[in-house]
Each structure stands twice: as structure tokens, then as C-alpha cells.
Design a protein around this nucleic acid. Structure first.
Lengths: 259, 259
DNA sequence: CGACTCTTTGAGAGGAATCAATGAGCGTGG
DNA sequence: CCACGCTCATTGATTCCTCTCAAAGAGTCG
């Protein structure tokens, strides 16, 4: 799935689904058809607003986005990150319940999918319907992990755990090296994700650096995890929770290509 | 728990789905057929174990259960509560990823549904497939709320907010009065749900009592919320998040995603 | 009447928030 | 070209929310 010459924008989705489900030629063509017309959204722009009922689903081709909610006192809680290859909005597109908002963290490219289209496709192609169900299950597992992180871990563990999860998820779509990746998050975003204050995120990040767990240059935004084993151990990160969500037949290492 | 006269064990599920989706006579009969053979699980027993791959889904007829995960240090985080009318295990039944466990908090009655059966039904009955999708969306909204609760609220708000959510969810299945219900939770369960210590839950509960927000008798386990408006205001509880999940006035769009 | 489990209280420790202020990098306009 | 304004990262000082340790009621069960 190298994204060089002759590569297709559908590849990332096909590769992702194929890791779990066998798609027929025809089904792959359907995905290709869906990813022909892309739209871009600027950094900071909302794609789905909390109250607005959207009737589309989206395939995220590139860039990072967040799903978030605002609390009465003005605070914000980030529910989850959306990374390349992720699908979002399909739940809201069915019922009028987009209870949370989605915002681009970087410029992103998405493919919009009208609700009718999804319904149509799911009716005709069993495996695509299954792929959608799988994507939902995956999302659920990620949310459950986020709940554990917030409920039962301290700041140090939360941060380290999140950074490991992101490494892992990015590797599944070839967007990370074996232990480093581009992390386009400000400390404020991290704070709103982990239920911490910005100040405390800053201090905890320093601790991680002092402990030689990570290297992070605020300029380049390049994050390197120096000791995955130690950090996983220290933060209670269980790789298997995402392994299940990737390719069961091959080891995760194989999926890591150059980036 | 089971109502006697002429009422049917399928009623709770039919009523729940009907609040959002119009089921045909035939579809209602399918549900009735599914709820004929029930099994009971004792308090404290696990229904789905973390590692064990279960290939069934379950309809929860009566009683309370929790979905939880254990962390390396021995702690436990409760992901969500399962109340009468809820469905669980259907995600795990499709893929081998039951990443969390389910345990009965009270004696419960469930109806087991083999995975093949689900697939079969979803293929044949569009609305039942839609109902399942709806149940998943509902669950997602509840998890998102839990994330906000853990990430951006203090102990007082977390507790009050949870008690309001439970009141609301129980009302949707006729298991609560206008402002009171049976709460079969120990303070330890509350602590593991809200990411707090038992001691702090105890103190916060007392504060809620002192503030005349609630009445709770540890003996009878009867909870009464004395001032819903004040408590909602104080804890940032937004009733609409669940209203959307049970309000019959909204119409669903098209069918999607058979499984 | 012990052995449990669950609740309740007290005291002290500590993790994380808040308040406050400085520095660094960047784009824009005078 | 440099100053001003903006966002983001950093650090110090102080406060406080929540945890941990400890121990004592209270209800239940055999």
C-alpha cells in the first residue's frame, strides 16, 4: 500500500477493510467510485456541528480531525481522534443525533457520502455493510479505551497511553514509522482529550522526556517514542486491543512501511 | 420482574424499538420468538469474559449489568451500565473482539441470540436491522457522555449527572417513577464507574443529600431525586442527549447496514 | 455470634488545577 | 524592516480536590 505512483485514493480504505474482510473486485470498485470526488476542509473548520443534522457520512482521506463536545461552563472534551482511513458521521446520518461535533485539526480531505448512497450500498454489498459494522465496533473499542484512560489512570499514564495508541493506529494506515510520527496536536488539544489542564500536560510531557520515554520537538511536531516496551509497561498499554482491530492474520509489524 | 397478565416478555423490546422505528406485525413476531427461551444469570456472574470469544448477542430482559475492563494494577473501570431493554454482545459476536467483560449486578434474565440468527434476521427484516443500528448509535452516545463526565466534571457533577442519566434511561423502559428508582449499586460500583475512590463517592453522596438534591436509603436502595432542575443545572446534565434516543416524534431515514 | 460486605468518618498526603507571567515563533501592517 | 498582536509552550507559586491509610458502625448470613 505504498502511496506513490499509480496509487489510488481508495487504497487506504480498501487496505483497511481488507485487513479484516475480503472484498470482491466489484466491492473494491464501489469504494473507488465513492472516493472520486473529494472535498477539503481547512484546519479549525467544523464538519459536523453539534446541533446541525447532517445526513452524510464521510471517509477521511488525509489529515486529523476530532470528535468533541462542549460542556456548559465552556470547556471542551474531545471524545476521539479521527485519522486517515476513518469513517465518521454515518451514525448521525441515520438518526438525527449528531450529539457531538467534528472539527478538522489539520487541513483534511474527505469524501462525502449521502445517507441514501450508504443505504443503497449496504443493501447490495454484504461485505461493505459488514465493513461498516466493523468500523463501528472498532470505534466502540477506542471509546472504551478512552473511558478507562480517563477513569483509572493518572496524567503520566494517560499521556503515554494515548501516544502509544496514536502510534499504533497510524501504523495501521502507514502513516507512522516504527516508533515515530507527526503529531499535529497542541498541548491544549491534549489537555482537552485527557481531561487535564494545559499546564499539567506541559509538565507531564516534560516528565516523559526526562524519563527518556519520548522525544518531541514542538517545532517540527515530530514525536518519537524511545522505549515502547517501557512506556507500554508504565502506562498499562495493551497493544492487543487494537491488534484485534487490525489484521488478525499478519503481525502488526508487517504493516509498518516507510512513510 | 416479569409482568404477569397477558403481557409478553418481548414487550419491553418492541416498545423500545417502536419509539423510534415502526415494526411490522411480522417483525414484532420475530422479536417475540426470540424472547421465548430466557436464561437467568446470578448476581456477580460474568456473561461475557474479556478474552473468551462469545458468538452470541443478548437481550437483557430484566436486571442490571455492567460492561467493564480491568487495568493492570488490578483496578476496574466500568464502561457502561446495561439496563432492561438493552442489547449487548452483538458487536463481539461478529468479530472476535470482546474487549470488555459483562457482569450481572443483580440477578438478570437474558435472551441469547446466536450470531447466525442475528445475521439471518438482519438480512430478512430491514427494520430490525435498523433497530440494531439504532441501538448501537444509542450506546455510542452514552459512551460519549461517559467520556465527558470523566474528563470534564468533578466528583459532585459526575455523580449527579450519572444519577440523572440512569433515571432517564430507566424511565424510557418504565422502570422508574417520575423522580425515583431502585438503584442496585454499591458505592464501590459507583466509584469504579466514575473514576473515583469509594471514600470520595461516600462523601459526595452525602453532599448531594445535604444539598437536598437526593434521598438515598442504603437499606432499600431507593433513590429519589428531589430537585431535577437544580441538579441538572448544577451538573450540566443535558436531557436532550437521551431524548433523541427515545423520542418517537422524529422519523428515521433509510435503512442501512444489515449485519 | 463471628465473618462478611458495605457504609461512614477522620486525618494526612499528593496529584492536578488555578493564577500569573515570561518566552518563542509567526504573520501582518505601518 | 521592525513592531505589534497572536498563539503556543514553559515555569513558578499556591490552592484544593481527591486519594490513601485507618478504623469504626451496621446489616446480613449461617
Amino acid at each position: 500500500m505504498a502511496d506513490n505512483t499509480g496509487s489510488n485514493s481508495a487504497d487506504i480504505f480498501i487496505a483497511k477493510f481488507s485487513s479484516y474482510i475480503d472484498l470482491s473486485e466489484q466491492e473494491q470498485e464501489v469504494i473507488e467510485a465513492l472516493t472520486q470526488n473529494s472535498m477539503t476542509v481547512d484546519e479549525g473548520q467544523d464538519i459536523i456541528l453539534e446541533s446541525e443534522k447532517s445526513s452524510s457520512a464521510y471517509l477521511l482521506q488525509s489529515g486529523w480531525a476530532i470528535r468533541y463536545k462542549v460542556v456548559p461552563d465552556g470547556g471542551r472534551q474531545i471524545i476521539s481522534f479521527l485519522l486517515p482511513g476513518d469513517i465518521f458521521g454515518f451514525r448521525e446520518s441515520l438518526f438525527d443525533l449528531s450529539d457531538d461535533s467534528v472539527q478538522a485539526l489539520t487541513p483534511i480531505i474527505v469524501h462525502r457520502l449521502p445517507a441514501e448512497k450508504i443505504a443503497e450500498i449496504c443493501d447490495s454489498f454484504t461485505n461493505l455493510s459488514l465493513a461498516l459494522t466493523w468500523a463501528r465496533a472498532r470505534e466502540h473499542a477506542i471509546l472504551a479505551e478512552q473511558i478507562v484512560r480517563l477513569g483509572r489512570r493518572n496524567a503520566y499514564e494517560r499521556l503515554g497511553h494515548l501516544l502509544l495508541e496514536l502510534l499504533h493506529r497510524l501504523q495501521l494506515v502507514d502513516k507512522a514509522g516504527s516508533s515515530e510520527y507527526y503529531l499535529p496536536l497542541t498541548q491544549e488539544i491534549l489537555a482537552d482529550t485527557l481531561g487535564l489542564s494545559i499546564v499539567h500536560v506541559n509538565r507531564t510531557l516534560r516528565k516523559l522526556r526526562n524519563d527518556k520515554m519520548i522525544e518531541l520537538d514542538p517545532k517540527t511536531r515530530r514525536l518519537r517514542i524511545l522505549n515502547k516496551e517501557a512506556l507500554s509497561e508504565r502506562t498499562g498499554y495493551d497493544q492487543s486491543f487494537l491488534d484485534q482491530l487490525g489484521d488478525p492474520s499478519r503481525s502488526p509489524q508487517e504493516a509498518i512501511g516507510s512513510d
